[in-house]
Design a protein around this nucleic acid. Sequence first.
DNA 1: TTGTATGCGTTATCAG
DNA 2: CTGATAACGCATACAA
Lengths: 342, 342
Amino acid sequence: MTTPGPRPARRATTVADVARAAGVSRQTVSNTLNAPQRVHPDTLARVTAAIDRLGYRPDQSARSLRTGERRTLGYLAPVDDPHDPNPLMAGFLEALVDAAGAEGHHVLLLRPAAGEQHARAAIDAVVAARQVDGLVLADVLPDDARAAHAARLGIPFAAFGRTGPDLPPHWVDIDNAAATAEAARHLAERGHRRVAFVGAPTPLPWLAARREGFHREAARLGLTLVPPPADGDLRTLLRTPDRPTALAADNDLAALDLYEAARTEGLHIGRDLAVTGFHDTPLARHLRPPLTSLRLPLRAIATALVTRLLAQVRGEPTPAEGVELRAELIVRPSSSLQSPRP
Amino acid sequence: MTTPGPRPARRATTVADVARAAGVSRQTVSNTLNAPQRVHPDTLARVTAAIDRLGYRPDQSARSLRTGERRTLGYLAPVDDPHDPNPLMAGFLEALVDAAGAEGHHVLLLRPAAGEQHARAAIDAVVAARQVDGLVLADVLPDDARAAHAARLGIPFAAFGRTGPDLPPHWVDIDNAAATAEAARHLAERGHRRVAFVGAPTPLPWLAARREGFHREAARLGLTLVPPPADGDLRTLLRTPDRPTALAADNDLAALDLYEAARTEGLHIGRDLAVTGFHDTPLARHLRPPLTSLRLPLRAIATALVTRLLAQVRGEPTPAEGVELRAELIVRPSSSLQSPRP
DNA sequence: TTGTATGCGTTATCAG
DNA sequence: CTGATAACGCATACAA
């Protein structure tokens, strides 16, 4: 260990420094930044030059203390194992940071321990310490405890995931049902008549919506829906004489499971069997054949969330309803051939 | 659109409120939080009770303004396409938030546009606005422009990725070479004599280190290193009579490419061919056979980064050298059988 | 041990 | 259009 000593506490430049440099009062500097129309053009130019020259930026703490504006949004991450993260997490966060940045806001990451009481405590803490102007919640359920708590506290929030009727409709979601319905139409157009939907049987609403959207559209199109095997083994599903010729998975990893099962059964994806995934992860491009998948409009979702959140922060009118955004079907060879003749 | 009107600006509770409720002065409340040993136990209990009852937390902006401590660390995310994120991003970020939280710090996400000047501008902005106590940099190169800029500014930073001799050694990294060396030993122990390393030919130092670590250890063990095919096609590599019986990939997706190539050539992974990956993504568990992979110590890395960063923030001695942490080989069936007799 | 006064840097109010 | 003054909430030096 060596000790470089405490770093030099370089005193930051303040309004006073700029004012002195520009030969004006502190207030004029402040006006230059916050109400430029009130400052004489000549003065404005002089002050702006001094600001640039000194590299001045208002101290956000001081500004926050004065105005109450934090210019920071809190993101309440879902609780994940770092080694098995939510497949959306990284991409969505990047889109969120960009969207917030476009509105002059930063994103503060919050990650409470699992359990509703920890989530509530984390919200209480960050709100009481006045560190954020509002919260973005991910993986929101209809009766989400975090959303309910934020609503109770009166702190602005925006939810990625549909909330129920007991909560304000500050939500944005993927139209999961429409997404898988599109997959069903796509498969039908390729001539498939016997189809199946595979994925977790969990009650998570977004997964349920994907299943339901597929089932409903398949029924509407007159397709035959092959039920999943009782034992949950995909190979069983592919082994029956009445096996489906096309399958939609509720995420890309489930599609990978299908690839593996198909190989075990000697079936070739893209020739004997069509498959679609969900999320359009990098995996989709690496599979052979490359996997048709549903790409989520992450940027649009992030923008919509930030827009709704900042409307609340600014006391502007907010939409009376949540909004669902469409996923985009990225067609690749796993589903692009015509169905085999039965 | 409906308008709920501006939200009620619930005046937050302050020290004064607590002091009044507890019948003490503001100073005593402050002492209760910042120097409890100076407060009479009885008074302490009374004040603490009032704090809990009122749900009081110090306003972080006010505290920061006074003390200079932001209790926030900035994370400079690598520039990724949201639809093709760094495979570590999500997991590492979660670990980082946990590690920072354990030290009472939050994490602020920064994501400048691509290009060194944007990265510098983002650092300048967040430093000038005094929003963070220090920076965590990810995907750091030896001559990293962000690290150089942080060093120049005198703002504390910690780098995930080794920095070169011109920069302070505030870095933590995976021991990439040791990781792939372990993979080589593992394959040798399983009886493999002809091996190969596959992955991107990019000059990214962490990828180069993985390749080099594997090559060196394989040579030390007397294994025969099969060079990658000139055309870059993995199938060519597997088609030669002298094909390797074991392959190490520099990431899990590259391992997937190997699975696909092996199938095309009629080779069975786990029987004809052993394969190892890198990162231990969820993909590794879904492949058939499940993929042996190198799991990164994300929590330890995050903790080490936070420790080094906060040491600088607090002006404490910092380690004179960077540190490399070991990855863990997770053995799965893709590599667990003995080599076939040649 | 507890209370009083001051200033951190900013913006808003109000006079000039 | 510009300049002086106050206040945001907190922590600290100092006095009691």
